[in-house]
Design a binder for these strands. Sequence first.
DNA 1: TCAGGAATCGAACGATCGTGCTATTATTCC
DNA 2: GGAATAATAGCACGATCGTTCGATTCCTGA
Lengths: 198, 198
Amino acid sequence: MSKGSDTRQAILEEAIAVSSRVGLDGLSIGQLAQEVGLSKSGLFAHFGSKEGLQRKVLEAGAEKFIDAVVRPALTAPRGAPRLQALFDGWIRWPERNDLPGGCPFVAASHELDDQPGPVRELLVQYQQDWLATITRAAEIAVEEGHLRSDLDSRLFAYEFQSIILGYHYYLRLMRDEGAMAMAERSFSDLLGRSRAQR
Amino acid sequence: MSKGSDTRQAILEEAIAVSSRVGLDGLSIGQLAQEVGLSKSGLFAHFGSKEGLQRKVLEAGAEKFIDAVVRPALTAPRGAPRLQALFDGWIRWPERNDLPGGCPFVAASHELDDQPGPVRELLVQYQQDWLATITRAAEIAVEEGHLRSDLDSRLFAYEFQSIILGYHYYLRLMRDEGAMAMAERSFSDLLGRSRAQR
DNA sequence: TCAGGAATCGAACGATCGTGCTATTATTCC
DNA sequence: GGAATAATAGCACGATCGTTCGATTCCTGA
């Protein structure tokens, strides 16, 4: 049962990249099959339905994201360095993982925000995990004495995520060459004003 | 030539609302015709092509946005009050204009960020105008002595827009009831740290 | 090695999409 | 009020979509 899951993995790899450009709904089974060298029905059989495919794409994308961003950050020292690692990891992960349309989760977030159903629920779950990761990392930074003890870690996560969404917008839509510089400066300001004063 | 532009306006009104939920590409001519009580070809004749419809929807949306957000803010006093008015106006404009899916420009921004063509170009133009409006308002606030003289107005606009995108994300996808509170607090912090110290 | 199961294909389905044509109805202008 | 014009409807087209089904090929484990 290895052949099956091999092509399956290849399909998902390609599907993640495509969905970063056209979204989960823009994914077409026929087109995807063609790009990966399969027949439409052959590909279809792997997932049973388009919704099944979308779910698996999200799952595989989350796994990839955790490997590329979250896990490396957890090897960084607790506190401010870890927060910085989370931010740096995110900024660079679409390019480092050959996602031509930027982060597929950002794309999916706006596509699914008004499309109820299990796919949306799954995405929301992943996003909650991600926000919880940021929040927890901020709390740890408080415990370590890097950030102010009265920091609102939830608000910190909001501003963290907002900077990321702004980066995606300036980079992908506006094609602004200063996007990364502004994002980095904005984040370093956020970190700076959250710092514990000595 | 009044009957024609009347129904045309009604079509666009409905199309803006629908596109706030499903995006510009999710707009279906047949479905839109049904909801507005026209035949598919009858509606089609107004725009000549789907792309024509999408362009007109963007145009009509921009007009609506300027009426709802930009123009009112220009009646507010120059400087910090005007910036606050821009922010408040944006936060409230989707609800006040019966846009069930939130701001249609935010939806379009992510849908079109990798779809080259005239529709995308038009959207980018509108977004540039919007960012320029924020930037200019920040510069005026500097001139008025409300904000620090060394303020980077471009970065200010970046953070302004990021807060808005974060708000949309927390509200529409995460359905977070604290979205507005966090956005407002975040913006008031931005304004606070940009203030000229006396 | 060979049987059994997994993987893939080919063809077809109903639905929906954007679009083009022609005919018909409604509106406007003299 | 009637002629000219605009607005709308009806129908058909080719394409693409997700999905189903039966046949076929491939792989794997005893």
